[in-house]
Design a protein around this nucleic acid. Sequence first.
DNA 1: CGCTACTTTGACGTGGCTCAACCCCAGTGG
DNA 2: CCACTGGGGTTGAGCCACGTCAAAGTAGCG
Lengths: 250, 250
Amino acid sequence: MPRTMSAPRLTQQDCSNCPIRHSAVCARCEADELERLESVKYYRSYKAGQQIAWAGEPLDFVGSVVEGVATLTQTMEDGRRQMVGLLLPSDFLGRPNRAKATYDVVATTDLVLCCFRQKPFQELLLDTPHISQRLLEMTLDELDAAREWMILLGRKTAREKIASLLSIIARRDASLRENPAEQSVVFDLPLTREAMADYLGLTLETVSRQISALRRDKVIVLEGKRHVTVPDFDLLMSETGDDSDGGIFG
Amino acid sequence: MPRTMSAPRLTQQDCSNCPIRHSAVCARCEADELERLESVKYYRSYKAGQQIAWAGEPLDFVGSVVEGVATLTQTMEDGRRQMVGLLLPSDFLGRPNRAKATYDVVATTDLVLCCFRQKPFQELLLDTPHISQRLLEMTLDELDAAREWMILLGRKTAREKIASLLSIIARRDASLRENPAEQSVVFDLPLTREAMADYLGLTLETVSRQISALRRDKVIVLEGKRHVTVPDFDLLMSETGDDSDGGIFG
DNA sequence: CGCTACTTTGACGTGGCTCAACCCCAGTGG
DNA sequence: CCACTGGGGTTGAGCCACGTCAAAGTAGCG
């Protein structure tokens, strides 16, 4: 399978109907700016499990996740792996003005990207302040998220790590729903136990054991391996070790 | 002691003689842009150990570290602490357009900041592309550093963590020297054992033991508690768990 | 000279890792 | 239709790296 293979391009879509229109890097753009974006953007699709980029290898585009989930991971020489990014819809992939990927990028579900080649995007950045401002804001948000993640990795117990990951996925998932008022917190895990372990700095066995423990303690209900119901979100939050706050829509 | 106390302001300095002129957020500015910066910048000084900001409390300025070292830390309800940022000269402190500090900020050595009030800085960002471009670049660099840090926290052993921290400090220290060619790698630790533990996600006892072990194994030589000599930098690098590379000036 | 903050070192306990067996289920091909 | 296979997941037994608790050493400083 060729490395840069991707599914056939989608038909050119209207930005104004895009599901991530108001949260992606284009969020602040006006109608005329969107027209310019439409003229240079293109879509790429990947199947679940497909690798999008290899650390150290060329990557000549940047873009936004439109649908699906991708991960950034780093592998040490002896095989130890750590996830360092979890890209959900509207998140930005790649670094402007950098020709090579810094991390392995893998689609963990079927994935659609809205892409820009490096050079045109660089020009967009230079003469579309609404884009560069938004990109700065998103990068600062990602830095805050990375710092939260550092607290998780450095100081939380295995149980707290699992609870934190579940709450993060639930929160992000809820923010995408049509009707955010609906109270049942139900979602599918987009990650295998192994990927969760790579996220959390644990082994997959420990992940499995702690999920079983949370199920035993009725903090979560599982149907199959991936489908999760959270009967009491505050209870889950109280297991994360974070300051009690509980608001799912913070 | 009032919270926002700081030492008397320095005399207004000429940006062109500033030690961080070419690496801080102002690095790309032209002469006329520097003039504008000079008209709104001001200096703040702090003593070693002094706290600069409290998580959740107002912080109405942003700025660059000119001299000294500051840390960003987060504390969990039960007192567990994790450092999430180590600010060395030329690093940027604070987030544009955010009125409150997200983390505790502490000067771990005597410190000088070059500051801007939030409002004027926001205006600078909007109409000085050289500043906003540079800030984006620095934020992306910080995100990369945060991700390296995540690998350290999630997957490295205690010994590897210590070796990694020493190499990071040595590297940053070397990049500030007049004569970077000089080969002896010698520096002072700007952190207590406890602060190192907070950085690395360890206890201070484990930090102390691992430093003793590296000394026993002749990877480092200590004079006093803080003054470190690295007789063979490649040897230290080989203890970090990172890809062998060894170049101190990468 | 006696605080106090920082550091080192020892003894012991334990949370999460390692190694290993086994389960479940969706393909796939005979 | 069933046997086989492989990827994911669960669970147990034992171990060890690092945390916890405790004591004592060291250096700066009023």
